[in-house]
């Protein structure tokens, strides 16, 4: 049996009385492009923080590449790349300085760091912004830089928290190409985003979290079949989009009805 790239058992995180994530058990196979979806406040970012060592789980375990993952698992961290929610940028450095810093923190040698910094800045169309401080970058440019920093050490597992937010269409297209290239070379990508079209296009497997609990997990076809079986008539009439699957699973029907009641709008 192949070792999972990411495996969690009963992952739970509580903040005082609030349970943000409860009993999440999931498995992501190596080379899989995995979409992790959920409404606002469902627990996506909390889960990704626990998976990357930014937040300690209250309960449950995490295995990455077959090894237990804790905050002190330094060797394992070399295999992981992350674009976290806050992007982890350092505002008072320029983009080349920041990438060089990140490369060295991941233990790359000077020549490799410099070469990859050059290539990544070129690829992200940031090469002509070399003298500008990161704090003066636009949000989209910061996202691109965060993405460059996440991949500079060639990670085997990549965690992306809303990587396309604020990124222009051209750059988004390039990023998608880069990510699919990484998948074809055997990397595993764990992606959270609110843009369902991107997940539908890129991801082979999807999990949906709602109110801290995992409510769906499987390939797109499995989710489609699951929803179709619960909604009468859908299996014959149409092929469900991910948006329809998502809305069906997280139970947004009631909210849609509520919205229709706002007759004064």
């Amino acid at each position: 049996m192949e070792t999972a790239a990411i495996q969690t058992y009963g992952l739970t995180r509580r903040f005082g009385a609030l349970t943000a994530v409860e009993g999440v058990t999931l498995s992501v196979a190596p080379g899989q492009f995995f979409g992790f979806l959920g409404p606002n406040g469902a627990g996506k970012s909390t889960t990704i923080k626990m998976l990357t060592g930014l937040l300690e789980p209250t309960a449950g375990t995490i295995d990455i590449l077959g090894q237990p993952f804790t905050a002190g698992a330094l060797e394992l961290k070399r295999q992981i790349g992350v674009v976290p929610e806050g992007m982890a940028l350092m505002g008072r450095l320029t983009a080349p300085e920041y990438l060089r810093f990140v490369g060295r923190m991941y233990g790359l040698d000077k020549a490799t760091t410099n070469q990859r910094t050059d290539e990544l800045l070129e690829f992200m169309q940031l090469a002509d912004q070399g003298r500008k401080l990161v704090t003066d970058f636009s949000h989209g440019m910061q996202k691109k830089l965060a993405m460059a920093a996440a991949v500079i050490h060639g990670p085997k597992v990549l965690f992306l928290d809303e990587p396309f937010e604020g990124v222009d269409a051209i750059a988004a297209g390039m990023l998608k190409t880069m990510l699919t290239g990484m998948i074809s070379r055997g990397a595993t990508i764990f992606l959270t985003t609110h843009v369902l079209e991107i997940v539908e296009r890129l991801c082979s497997h999807v999990a949906i979290i709602s109110q801290g609990r995992l409510v769906a997990n499987g390939s797109l076809e499995e989710l489609r079949a699951g929803v179709a079986s619960t909604v009468p008539g859908t299996e014959q009439t149409q092929r469900l989009t991910l948006e329809e699957i998502f809305l069906s699973i997280v139970g947004a029907d009631g909210q849609q009805e509520s919205a229709q009641e706002l007759t004064w709008l």
Binding site: A88, L89, V102, M105
Partner: peptide, 16 residues
């Protein structure tokens, strides 16, 4: 104090 969001990097990287 001056790290800002960059503090995350120290927890993400393999540097103790």
């Amino acid at each position: 104090g001056a790290e800002g969001a960059g503090i995350q990097l120290y927890f993400l990287s393999p540097t103790p």
